[in-house]
Computed example of a mutant assay.
Amino acid sequence: MAYPAGPAMYPAVMGMQAPALYNPVPGYEGLVPGASGGFIPPPPVQPMPTPDSHPAQDWSIPALTKEDAKEAFCKHVDSNCCWSSGPAKDCTITNMEQFNTYRYRLETYTESRKTEWATKPYDGQPVNAFTQPPPGPWQIPVNPPEMFKDSVQEVEVPYTSSVKPCEKCSATGKCACTACTGSGDKVCLTCSGSGKVSGEESCNECNGTGKKKCNDCSGQGTVQCATCKGKRQLLSYVKLTVEWKNNVEDFMAEQASGLKMEKLDAVSGKQLFKDTKYMVYPLLGFPDHNMVQASERMIREHQSKYSQSARILQQQQRVELIPITKVTYEWEGKSHVYYVFGNESKVKADDYPATCCCTIL
């Protein structure tokens, strides 16, 4: 078999294990064949943005009415098959307290890049190693997906490809069949390899031989090499892996309603503020000082943390006001409490007085 000449082509060594023939290419000399590539430091980060003025925001939210609170309560009770609807329908609401809380969310959308040697079956593609210097990892144009969506893309670095013989099959295109260990046949399961059944009767499945042709290799003892797909050669190149990741962090302002904070993770709130920029600036003029401090801390930490190993493409911050109403009600002379929270009007009623309406016969 003839192989094209040139610095990017290597002769296949037939019938023997071929050596790993990776010639280092300019700018990628540190890559070791077979080793996982490391992340490439991003270009220098741009300076922090300057404060800008945000328009005046409406921080209020309408109070929950008794009618809406009772409707949400009844729906919640109806969704629990073993709860009696009596207390929800017949109770008297005696007090309603609002404990609205804020949720701050910061999203930092980053792009990271790493390089490593890779191979794929050689199908006659042009090879171009050493024809000119390859571009650096951050010089290769790769279009990002939709902002704030996680994604991964692999790119062949230009001017790094060469051809090498497949080491897995010693450039033959075939490997020994693992199902029959290269023999071409397997022990007959019907007779367990004895060739006989029911005493001295010859086994019909294997015609008394005790062996059957291996289906995996059709009795040949060899199968197509999975590495080179039978091509006998591999295209060797530097692979660039680009990963886009949306790094999300939330901060919830404490509230004294008694409702556990983790319950609020499952609900949405009224969006009061949203800001999207290359780099956002901390909240200004917000009525909750804890939210302002959290915004300053999280933005500072994100820009310090993610700019070390990735390039920040965009940031987004938003503030939601999550409604929480603590409802006190009476039923049969006793006082109980439930909570209505989130835009979805979810209900939490731990001390519901009639949680089982099933009768055991």
Results as ranks from 00 to 15, higher is better:
Arg318Gly: 11
Lys348Pro: 00
Cys357Arg: 14
Leu272Phe: 05
Gln153Lys: 15
Leu284Ala: 13
Thr108Arg: 02
Lys120Tyr: 01
Gly184Leu: 02
Ile324Lys: 12
Lys196Ala: 11
Thr190Asn: 15
Leu259Tyr: 11
Gln153Cys: 05
Gln139Thr: 00
Met48Cys: 02
Pro135Leu: 06
Ser183Asp: 05
Glu320Cys: 05
Gly230Met: 10
Ile61His: 15
Tyr28Thr: 00
Lys334Gln: 14
Ser345Tyr: 10
His54Asp: 08
Gln224Val: 12
Lys149Thr: 01
Val267Ser: 08
Gln316Met: 15
Asp275Cys: 13
Lys326Ser: 13
Tyr22Gly: 00
Tyr329Val: 00
Asp275Gly: 07
Glu344Gln: 15
Gly124Ala: 05
Thr108Gly: 04
Glu262Tyr: 12
Asp150Thr: 00
Pro51Ala: 06
Gly208Val: 01
Tyr278Asp: 06
Gln316Cys: 15
Pro144Lys: 11
Pro145Asp: 00
Gln46Pro: 07
Tyr281Pro: 07
Ser257Ile: 02
Ile93Val: 08
Gln316His: 14
Pro41Asp: 02
Gly15Cys: 06
Ser85Glu: 01
Thr94Val: 12
Ala349Leu: 03
Ile322Trp: 11
Gln224Leu: 08
Lys211His: 14
Gln233Cys: 07
Thr222Ala: 11
Arg105Asp: 01
Pro144Ala: 07
Lys263Val: 00
Gly285His: 09
Tyr22Glu: 04
Ala5Lys: 14
Gln271Pro: 02
Pro4Ala: 12
Thr94Met: 13
Lys270Gly: 01
Tyr10Thr: 04
Met298Ala: 09
Asp123Phe: 11
Asn204Glu: 09
Trp331Arg: 03
Lys70Trp: 04
Thr65Asn: 05
Gly6Ile: 03
Gln57Thr: 13
Gln125His: 09
Pro33Met: 08
Met96Thr: 01
Gly219Met: 08
Asn204Asp: 10
Thr94Ile: 12
Val280Glu: 06
Tyr122Ala: 04
Trp83Pro: 05
Ser198Asn: 15
Ala171Tyr: 10
Cys203Val: 00
Asn95His: 14
Ile40Met: 09
Cys180Met: 08
Gln303Arg: 15
Ser257Gly: 12
Leu106Glu: 05
Thr181Lys: 15
Gly182Lys: 09
Gln315Asp: 06
Gly208His: 04
Ser170Leu: 06
Trp117Asp: 01
Tyr102Lys: 01
Glu71Ile: 02
Lys174Phe: 14
Val32Ser: 05
Pro323Val: 03
Gly184Lys: 07
Leu240Cys: 05
Asn128Gly: 09
Ile93Trp: 09
Trp59Pro: 02
Ala354Met: 15
Ser345Asp: 06
Asn23His: 13
Thr227Arg: 12
Arg311His: 11
Asn343Ser: 12
Ile93Asn: 12
Phe286Glu: 07
Thr190Trp: 03
Asp288Cys: 13
Pro282Trp: 05
Ser84Trp: 02
Asp351Val: 02
Asn246Lys: 03
Cys82Pro: 01
Pro141Asn: 06
Lys164Trp: 02
Pro42Lys: 08
Ser309Asn: 14
Glu344Asp: 11
Glu344Trp: 10
